[in-house]
Design a protein around this nucleic acid. Structure first.
Lengths: 179, 179
DNA sequence: ATCGATTTGTGCGCTAATGCACGAATCGTG
DNA sequence: CACGATTCGTGCATTAGCGCACAAATCGAT
């Protein structure tokens, strides 16, 4: 059981938080490594101990969240859509700053496309399970993939007008009825 | 110009903040060094790099704030009592958690007595300046010293019922009228 | 295109923090 | 009082972070 040194955890957490904050204030392209270091209160030199560059930082941060969502999907394997969506929306709410910032950001389309890609992957697993609905699978996937990403974007951009519970019920029902 | 290494500043800040938080939850005597380390997310070993023990921590923290208030007194040397008190009450408000915790704490009477001692010192400077009012100087000092500490305590214990401005006006007027 | 300013990536020597271990001290219970 | 559990203070080897410096790359203005 390898325990990660606390200093590493602290530095990484500070860097990640700083990055997300800055993403809500500036375009990705405008953010410098020194900006991140200043906001994180670490040496610029330190960032390079953990990340190759800011693209690597964005990538790793994205993958972390996607891995978490993926694990939630595994947990949800035996659940109905509503309960599964509730896990997701609860997760989105807990990481509000991250998701709202990333989905809103003008200079980081990368995140949105990666998120869509992930959602499509998960949907693909679901659709394979339900045999007999193979008519235009690609189109169906893209349709619902975009719908899910879109509704999450909408939820954040509009300041979460409904609770995670309500969102889960509505999105879950839509998925149930169509997949 | 000696620049303090950022790691030292971060560790000290974390330790001090953790200590104040814990003081609002437990008696001083019940707080262990491990409690502080855990809350501060630093190694217990690290605390000893900066402080001899928890008494030293309490002492240093107290002296820091008292030094700041003392500097405000120097700034206020040419001001009337109301403006001078405003500087103090603004300071108290900015350090709300510290002062309310320390003045409320059952296990750290040390702070209250040190604060009183400091207030008495400052009052002594003021009373010396105003010649002709030497009747029962010790009694006068203790009277107003306790009054000032008491009203600050009351302010915090009652959740700051008035703004710093109002408090400064009332306390400043009382001092003006009596000293 | 040129040029000065800014940012990037990296090597490096040094310092602060880490976690472990251990004996001493203290605490709480029977 | 005895004793086990907990906390304290400290030595120590190791590691992560620091800040500096510098060359290369990039940016923005002329």
């Amino acid at each position: 059981m390898s325990k990660v040194d606390r200093r590493i955890l602290k530095s990484q957490e500070a860097i990640k938080s700083a990055f997300v904050e800055l993403m809500s204030e500036k375009n990705f392209d405008e953010i410098t490594m020194q900006d991140i270091a200043d906001r994180a209160n670490v040496g610029r030199r330190t960032i390079y101990l953990h990340y190759t560059d800011k693209y690597d930082l964005l990538d790793k941060l994205t993958e972390e969240h996607i891995n978490e969502l993926s694990e939630l999907c595994e947990l949800a394997a035996d659940m109905n859509y509503i309960d599964a969506e509730l896990l997701w929306f609860n997760y989105f709410e807990r990481h509000y700053l991250f998701f709202s910032t990333m989905l809103a950001s003008k200079g980081a389309l990368y995140f949105r496309s990666r998120f869509l890609e992930f959602v499509l992957e998960e949907l693909k697993n679901e659709v394979n399970i339900k045999e007999g609905k193979n008519h235009g699978e690609d189109v169906t996937l893209q349709f619902f993939g975009a719908a899910i990403v879109g509704v999450v974007e909408w939820w954040f951009k509009n300041g979460k007008p409904y609770s995670p519970q309500v969102m889960a019920e509505r999105v879950g029902s839509l998925l149930d009825r169509n997949l």
